[in-house]
């Protein structure tokens, strides 16, 4: 074996407040995970190696950081800032880091009244008089996505990210130049602009999203008949599990507003899309677009009929922004750090 012409890249993998499914997705690149060592030194991975955030001080720099999970506590924020400071490339991995994810739904509830940090800290201090007890990291005033805290270079969306795109991101950002066969494998799964960049040996343009180019409907296998929205159904009710488009059957399915990349995974399982890849590029606000798409195809011109139909629709915010409330809802979100 010859000497490796390209030095190994230093890789960091971290989950803030999340469920570990993104890290499992990285472990899920099958037995390839152990071959990552050929092109990367995993310098920081708390879940697998027990690395502590203070270990980062010893690192001069990190080449690529895959950051998963939402920002919920001050520890999450500190880790995000420290990893950003050390990392040349910061990747938001998964829906929680990229958009705030399901933990972001907390932002529309009354949680802060009940379990807010001020009350918690106060009680904690009172207790320390009697016996010393450890502190908890204070909670953020609301759940945030990573781009609202630091500048993020690339996004790998999904809940959890699909194996194809995660593998493509690792190949193109971490292992570039290592193996033409692997690069072409990665490129075949990426949008053209990103694919061209990585096959030319350069990094994809900053801000690229490792996902498809269109909306989920483009890769959904279900049959669309351009029918109008004549009834509203909820997923527990009877509908055709296979075959016809779910939205045309009256189920709220967000395929039309969601970035493609999953291959229509949920709709193929007979379940409506809930938008874990975030909004498609051309869309400003996924919820507003869904309201407009559904209301413009109501199969009635009668105001009363339309009102009755609308009355049945439940939990618009929790459905349309299931994974994206902190970052993509125009009425709730704050700008990202770009």
């Amino acid at each position: 074996m010859g000497t490796n012409p390209v030095p190994n890249k230093k890789l960091a993998i971290f989950t803030a407040t999340g469920c570990r499914a993104c890290e499992n997705a990285i472990l899920d690149i099958h037995y390839q995970v152990s071959s990552l060592a050929r092109c990367a030194d995993i310098a920081f991975w708390p879940y697998m190696l027990g690395s502590e955030v203070r270990d980062l001080e010893k690192q001069e720099s990190i080449d690529v950081c895959f950051f998963a999970g939402a920002i919920r506590t001050s520890s999450d924020r500190e880790a995000a800032l420290k990893l950003r400071e050390k990392s040349r490339i910061m990747v938001a991995c998964g829906a929680c880091a990229a958009f705030g994810g399901m933990p972001g739904l907390v932002n529309i509830s009354q949680w802060s009244v009940v379990s807010g940090q001020s009350q918690r800290t106060m009680d904690n201090k009172q207790q320390t008089n009697e016996e010393e007890k450890p502190e908890l990291p204070p909670l953020e005033s609301r759940v945030l996505g990573l781009p609202q805290i630091v500048k993020v270079d690339y996004l790998v969306p999904g809940c959890p990210p699909t194996q194809n795109f995660l593998w493509a991101a690792i190949q193109s950002l971490v292992c570039n130049g290592q193996s033409p066969a692997r690069l072409s494998f990665a490129a075949s799964r990426l949008p053209e602009a990103i694919a061209q960049a990585i096959t030319s040996g350069i990094l994809p343009p900053k801000g690229s999203i490792f996902a498809g180019e269109k909306a989920v409907c483009a890769s959904c296998s279900r049959v669309k008949e351009e029918k109008r929205f004549e009834t509203y159904k909820r997923p527990y009710q009877a509908y055709e599990e296979l075959g016809r488009c779910l939205l045309e059957q009256g189920l709220v399915c967000q395929g039309i507003t969601t970035q493609e990349g999953c291959g229509g995974l949920c709709t193929a399982m007979g379940q409506p899309c809930r938008g874990c890849f975030g909004k498609a590029e051309a869309i400003f606000d996924p919820g507003a677009k869904m309201v407009s798409a559904i209301s413009s195809t109501f199969d009635s011109n009668d105001a009363q009929e339309i009102a009755a139909l609308v009355d049945d629709i439940v939990d618009l915010v929790g459905t349309f922004y299931r994974y994206t409330l902190p970052t993509q809802c125009a009425l709730f979100s704050t700008p990202s750090k770009d």
Binding site: C19, S75, M102, S109, S115, L136, P137, D315
Partner: peptide, 27 residues
């Protein structure tokens, strides 16, 4: 110490009940 809350109650309240299998799978 478990240093971050899971907020399950706050994520689930107000959702249609049939959505819970897809939400609670985050546990």
């Amino acid at each position: 110490q478990v240093s971050a809350p899971r907020d399950i109650e706050w994520i689930c309240k107000g959702r249609p009940v049939e959505e819970l299998p897809r939400i609670l799978t985050i546990l």
